[in-house]
Design a protein around this nucleic acid. Structure first.
Length: 262
DNA sequence: GATGACCTGTGA
DNA sequence: TCACAGGTCATC
């Protein structure tokens, strides 16, 4: 599913292919998909005639600024959303999500005056579009997370370390798969109360976040982790061969190695 | 901070 | 036919 890596790929696609093209029409066939109280008519009114000037990202949220004082268009991919510009989709096929092309899955689109279009396709309908999203509700972007940012977050919480890493208001961008991969690499049990991590473990987690984003980013997304293939009942740890333990932590399915994640 | 609802395609 | 996947939000 889309996490920060998929969002970044989508941002790059928008930046490369959708900026500075006048918006001629807005396609919003699914009012439910529009959040923050806006309607298809309001979005059309706000965007038609403008151009996107910049594509930014904070965590998993895509922000497209528009010209002449227009609103920022916020796009969220939910768990199955993909951005498509002129028929080209960003990134690899998604795991746990359909990858077909059913037109009914198009939840939102911009048609440009030149005839091209930007589309958000989301079979599961858990994505969202809104105008002027509140970006400050999100914490520090995971790409810029440093040990000095992470340490106080961990020290301040009795919740499982996994819950802290998943909390978008503290660290923006990490989803279920990336967090499991990070803790796998760091050798830390996801259920450990965050504040019980010692300085060496804090360092390993901070390092694992940046390593994981860099390495999986190069490989092509959050579904390319070392840990992912073992992510099934009976799966074995690729590091030491132990059978992974499946639990629910922070409300999410969690796989961890009972031998080296302590 | 934890839990369940939201939504729907997939695979058993 | 049904459990399950998961990001986010409302509610406890």
């Amino acid at each position: 599913m889309p996490e920060i890596l998929e969002a970044e790929v989508a941002r790059c696609l928008i930046e490369a292919a959708a900026l500075d093209r006048p918006i001629q029409d807005v396609h919003a066939p699914d009012p439910w998909f529009l959040k923050g109280g806006c309607t298809p008519a309001a979005v059309r009114e706000a965007l038609v005639g403008r151009r996107c000037t910049r594509a930014r990202r904070r965590g998993k949220l895509l922000c497209c600024d528009t010209d002449r004082g227009g609103p920022t268009l916020g796009l969220h991919l939910g768990m199955s959303g993909r951005v498509i510009v002129d028929g080209t989709a960003a990134g690899d096929p998604l795991r746990y999500a359909p990858n077909g092309e059913d037109p009914a899955w198009v939840r939102f689109g911009l048609r440009f005056a030149d005839g091209g279009h930007l589309v958000l396709r989301d079979p599961r309908r858990l994505g969202a579009v809104r105008l002027d999203p509140d970006e400050d509700r999100l914490g520090i972007d995971a790409f810029s997370l440093r040990l000095g940012d992470l340490r106080p977050l961990l020290r301040a919480s009795r919740a499982p370390v996994k819950a802290v890493l998943l909390d978008q208001s503290r660290i923006a961008g990490l989803g279920n798969l990336l967090v499991d991969e990070v803790l796998f690499r760091a050798g830390v049990d996801p259920a450990r109360p965050a504040r019980t991590l010692d300085p060496a473990e804090q360092r390993r987690v901070a390092r694992a976040v940046s390593d994981t984003l860099r390495i999986l980013g190069r490989r092509g997304g959050s579904h390319t982790g070392d840990h992912i293939e073992a992510r099934r009942p009976g799966g074995r740890c690729p590091r030491d061969g132990a059978e992974l333990v499946r639990r629910t932590i922070a409300g999410r399915t969690t796989y961890a190695c009972p031998v080296h994640q302590r």
